[in-house]
């Protein structure tokens, strides 16, 4: 092949790459743009400040405050519960166990695999647990399902964060006579911004997921007060309203989608800044 032909091939593929890059990058703007264009005309103060009033589902007064609060409760509860379980696990795997031991290897593999399990399977599994324990669709059931879903995310993120802490820190603590538990506390303090990132990531996943809460959290027009009451969630509210034939209700679905998108974008931006701050600290 002549050099000219080879150069042309390079140029063609480079152009294709730029094109692919633009397509992948612009898909985000397409999605957010579509949601904003569709949702903005329907977004009113009532939408975020009121719970559904009588006749809400035929296009009358009301808002989706019940779903917003329900989602926050659900994702918040699951994140707290998930942290209580995943911080000890990641400390144990990274500080107590030797690197490369059988348990730490298989646990990491297990979490990688669990991370890939779809939320509908977690939902179905949590639902069988609920039948077994006799819990009906409620905030508690939803929290269980979402906790199962986000534990792998939390463990994997914390794992990555702990890996960035210099080994010397642990060794220094241990050589000063600290127990491993005390060394763990030192490391935990060091990775605090990383924990915030993990929390936001898990919270974002929890608030946006619908397949896991579909049969576990139920749906309600009221804001849940007790943990055994069914709770509405924002994604589910979008899903239900969208299938309505009434234009006003559909419009509310667009507005709810916009609210959810804004929440997610805020979470992502905040966690991005926290992550940036952390890297600054390390250097």
């Amino acid at each position: 092949m002549g050099i000219k032909k080879r150069k042309t091939e390079e140029t063609i593929f480079k152009a294709l790459m730029v094109l692919a890059c633009i397509m992948v990058g612009s898909s985000l703007f397409l999605i957010v743009g579509t949601i904003v264009v569709k949702g903005l005309p329907y977004l009113t103060w009532d939408m975020v400040s009121k719970i559904p009033q009588g006749g809400f589902y035929i296009g009358e007064e009301g808002g989706v405050l019940n779903a917003i609060i329900g989602s926050l409760y659900l994702a918040g509860g699951a994140t707290v519960l998930g942290l209580c379980i995943s911080i000890p696990i990641s400390i144990y795997l990274n500080i107590y166990l030797k690197r490369g031991s059988f348990l730490s290897k298989s646990a990491k593999l297990a979490f990688d695999v669990l991370f890939g399990i779809p939320s509908i399977v977690y939902g179905a599994f949590a639902f069988s647990i609920m039948i077994w324990m006799g819990v009906r669709a409620s905030l508690l059931g939803g929290v269980i399902a979402v906790t199962l879903l986000i534990i792998p995310i939390l463990v994997r993120t914390l794992d990555e964060v702990i890996a960035t802490v210099p080994k010397e820190l642990k060794h220094a603590a241990l050589s000063l006579g600290a127990t491993r538990w005390e060394a763990a506390k030192v490391i935990l303090r060091q990775i605090r911004p990383g924990i915030y990132t993990a929390v936001l990531l898990a919270f974002g996943r929890g608030i946006g997921d619908v397949a896991s809460v579909l049969f576990t959290a139920g749906f309600s027009d009221n804001i849940p007060i007790y943990i055994d009451e069914p709770a509405a969630t924002l994604p589910l509210a979008i899903f239900f309203q969208l299938s309505s034939p009434i234009p006003e209700v559909q419009g509310r679905a667009y507005a709810s989608a916009l609210i959810l998108t804004i929440i997610i974008l805020v979470i992502v931006v905040v966690s991005h800044f926290i992550a940036a701050k952390q890297t600054k600290h390390n250097i």
């Binding site: 990058g25 946006g208 899903f239 969208l242 959810l260």
Partner: peptide, 28 residues
Amino acid sequence: SVRRVMLPLVNILAGIPPVIYGVWGIFF
């Protein structure tokens, strides 16, 4: 510089909830 722009974009894309993808799918 391109990398610094693209990677956050991809991360945000990963964070968008499925239901939003669904709404986008219906309208786009």
